[in-house]
Computed example of a mutant assay.
Amino acid sequence: MKRESGLLHILARVLLVILALYLSWTAAFFITAAIYSRMSWAPHDLFAFLINATLGFFFFSIISMVVRRFIQPREQHFFTEMIDALKRISQGDFHINLDWDFGWRNGKPRRPHPYVQLVDGINDMVANLKAMEELREEFVSNVSHEIGSPLTSIIGFAKALKDENLDREQRDRYLTIIETECTRLSKLSDNLMKLAVLDSERHPFRPSPYRLDKQLISLILACEPQWEAKKIDMTVEADKVEVHADEDLMGQAWVNLLHNAIKFTPESGSISVSLSSNGDQAIVCIADTGLGIDEQDQQRIFERFYKTDKSRARTVGGSGLGLSIVHKITEMHSGSISVSSRVGEGTAFTVLLPLHQEAKKGSSNC
């Protein structure tokens, strides 16, 4: 269909040129005939033909110049505007939206002009660059905030330690705070490095068959000191399930989810971990009886640095990167993760993971 439309367009242009030539030659014929009649002169047929042809081409040139005079300024203005827009884009200005009326005639849409497609392409590029720039600015702002807060505490308490009148109890308390903040910075650095490596796809990705139920039970037992300290009732129901995945990467995902559940579950609360299979998928659900997550926050819970309660997250040392890492790892395995929660009743994260399908490394951002 596009090829036929293009051929018709070329044919129409050729017909217009031929018509212009015919009109020019016709005008030349009648003008020279009138001149010959007034001069009472009858030139040789060949000479008359050459004069008519030359005059006809002269008229055709004038018509072409007149038409070009009306068309070229529009095109020159378009290219000037486009070049200026590209210069602004190269300087980091993404608040640009080119508009051109090549696609309209008398208020009605017509066949798409190549210039219109070019403008649409530039506008789409600017919109994508603007979105990426906003994400970059938000990311830098979040990183600066997450790094700045513990550094401020460390500097403040380090200065306080210079006071020789401090008793041992105060000194030990200040040193504990400094140690805690340093640990927080170290975890933040580790998580940022993990995300950077996962995004760049340089992380070794080695899927292989292994027992997922054994992995989950092993990791839950490794976390026993944390949930025992809070007197949390841990319940595990795991069917025998074998998956084809990167065991190390999935281990990181389960650890993040388990630590997240333990952190936000109050003392004497409960956490349940279940594993089952349905068709060609493994289904892992980690549910807690914490404070829950508001519905509007659930839509952004997997965004980097997003925290549902920043003050509460700060008291438990959260950076807002753990769930982003889990989301990225599940996507790399062609799986998915979802959250279900009600405020005051707890939260449940459900991970769907392929069983036998060859795991592949995804490139989408979380």
Rank of each mutant, 00 (worst) to 15 (best):
Q281I: 00
V241H: 05
L221N: 02
I293G: 06
F305K: 04
I217M: 10
A287L: 09
T235V: 15
Q281F: 06
G290P: 12
R202E: 12
E267A: 12
S208A: 15
V284H: 06
R206Q: 13
L291W: 14
V241I: 04
S268N: 15
S276A: 09
I301D: 09
T235F: 14
R202P: 02
E224R: 10
I286V: 10
R304L: 10
N256W: 08
K307L: 15
L275K: 07
E247Y: 10
Q215F: 05
I271G: 03
H244C: 11
G292D: 09
I286W: 07
I220E: 08
H203V: 05
Q252M: 05
E303T: 12
S276L: 08
D246P: 08
S268C: 13
I232G: 05
E247K: 14
S268I: 12
S272N: 10
I293S: 07
Q298F: 08
V255Q: 00
A229D: 13
K240C: 10
F305I: 05
R211E: 04
L275E: 03
V236K: 06
Q299N: 06
E228I: 10
C285H: 06
A282C: 12
F264S: 07
D280C: 07
M250T: 03
K307I: 13
D288E: 06
T289R: 13
Q299C: 05
S218E: 15
D213I: 08
G269T: 11
A261P: 06
S277Q: 15
E228C: 08
S276V: 03
E295W: 13
R202F: 15
K231P: 07
E247R: 14
E242F: 11
A282D: 10
K231S: 12
L212V: 01
C285Y: 06
P266E: 03
V255F: 03
R206S: 12
H203Q: 12
Y210R: 07
I283H: 03
Q252S: 03
R300H: 14
K307D: 04
F302L: 01
E295F: 13
K231D: 12
A253Y: 02
K307S: 14
P266M: 04
D239T: 05
P266I: 00
E201A: 13
Q252H: 04
N256C: 07
P207C: 03
G251V: 01
L216V: 02
A261S: 01
K230S: 05
D288F: 10
L221A: 08
F205K: 00
P266G: 00
N278T: 11
A222F: 04
D233A: 09
Q299D: 07
E267S: 13
I301T: 00
V241M: 09
H203R: 11
D288L: 11
E295T: 15
M250D: 00
C223P: 00
S208T: 14
Q298L: 08
D294I: 14
G279W: 02
G279H: 03
G251E: 09
K231L: 09
E247Q: 14
S218K: 14
I220G: 08
N278Q: 13
I232A: 08
C285Q: 13
N278V: 09
M250K: 01
E267L: 04
E303F: 11
P209C: 09
I262C: 01
Q252W: 06
S218H: 13
D233C: 02
S270P: 12
I271E: 03
V236S: 04
F264P: 02
P266L: 00
V255C: 10
I286Y: 01
